[in-house]
Amino acid sequence: MQQIVDLQNSPEFQALDVQVISIARDTVEEMAPESQVLGISSVPILSDPDLKVSAEYDVLQWAIDNGEPSHTFVLVDGDGQISWIKDYGAPDNPERTMYVEVDELIRFVSKNLNQ
C-alpha cells in the first residue's frame, strides 16, 4: 500500500494529471480499514476477487506463487489505448521488487504519454 500512498502524495506525479487505480484480489472489507488508516482518498482501491480483470490485462503471466498479480503497472492513455506495461515483481525477475520509486514511474509515464 505504500506504493499507492507515495503516488497519491507526490506533487510531481500529480502534475502529470494521471489517475492511479489500484487493483488487488482482496475484498473491499479487507482493504477499507487500511486504506482509511493510510489516508488513501484519491486512488480507487478496487477488488478483483476472481482475478478476472487481472487476467484480461494479461498480468497473471507474472503472478506470484499463489496466483495473484505481483507488482505490475499498466498505463492507459487518454484515448483508451494501452501505451505501457511493466512488471516488477515476477518471481523469475532477477531485479524483482515490490516497490518502485515514484521518480522512475514519473519517467516512464511521461515518456509513454509524450509529456
Binding site: P69, H71, F73, G78
Partner: peptide
Amino acid sequence: ALGGKTSLSEYSGTPVLLFFHMAV
C-alpha cells in the same frame, strides 16, 4: 474499498495508471 463501484470508462479522456498488486 473507498465506496461504491469504479469503472475504467469513468476516466474516459484521462490517462490512467492501473496498478495490479498482491493482496494487502
